[in-house]
Measured scan of single mutants.
Amino acid sequence: TRVETATETAWISLVTALHLVLGLSAVLGLLLLRWQFPAHYRRLRHALW
């Protein structure tokens, strides 16, 4: 049971790290898009909202 718990903890930390990385890359990508294509971003936002 001790090994299982350790594996579970490792998986949880791995998944958390993955989610953090994905979230950060998504935010960075959005910022980059907004910085590179302001007109396109505004049009996209206008279409979405």
Rank of each mutant, 00 (worst) to 15 (best):
H46S: 07
A39M: 10
L33T: 04
A39H: 14
T5H: 00
T7M: 12
L33Y: 08
W49I: 03
A39K: 12
R34A: 07
A26C: 14
G29F: 13
V21M: 12
F37A: 06
A47H: 10
Y41F: 13
T5P: 00
V15D: 02
G29V: 14
T7L: 10
E4H: 11
A39N: 15
T7V: 13
L22P: 03
T1L: 13
L22E: 03
G29T: 15
S13L: 10
G29L: 15
H40E: 08
A10M: 10
A17N: 01
S13D: 06
L24W: 07
L44D: 05
T1E: 09
Y41H: 07
F37Q: 05
I12F: 10
S13C: 13
T16P: 03
L30P: 03
T1Y: 10
S25W: 06
I12W: 07
W11K: 05
T7Y: 08
A47V: 08
A26M: 15
G23I: 13
W49G: 02
A6E: 09
L44N: 00
L30C: 14
E4S: 09
G23T: 08
Q36D: 01
L14R: 01
Y41W: 13
W11V: 12
L48I: 15
V27G: 09
H46P: 05
V15K: 00
Q36Y: 15
T7I: 12
L24Y: 01
T1S: 11
S25I: 06
R2M: 15
S25V: 10
L33D: 01
S25D: 02
R43F: 07
L30Y: 08
L30W: 12
S13V: 11
A17P: 01
T1F: 11
R45Q: 06
A39Q: 14
G29A: 13
T1K: 12
S13H: 11
L33S: 02
G29D: 05
L44Q: 01
L32W: 06
T7P: 09
R42S: 14
L24R: 03
R45F: 05
L22K: 01
V3N: 05
T9P: 15
R34F: 03
R43A: 11
P38S: 12
L48C: 12
L30N: 03
L18Y: 03
R2F: 09
L18M: 15
Y41A: 15
L31H: 04
W35I: 15
A10H: 14
L22N: 02
Q36M: 15
L30A: 13
V15G: 02
E8G: 05
V3K: 01
A17I: 12
A39T: 15
R42W: 09
V27E: 03
A39G: 15
W49V: 03
A6W: 07
R2C: 09
F37K: 03
T9C: 06
A47Q: 06
L44H: 05
T5E: 00
L22Q: 01
L30V: 09
L24C: 11
G23R: 01
T16M: 07
W35M: 15
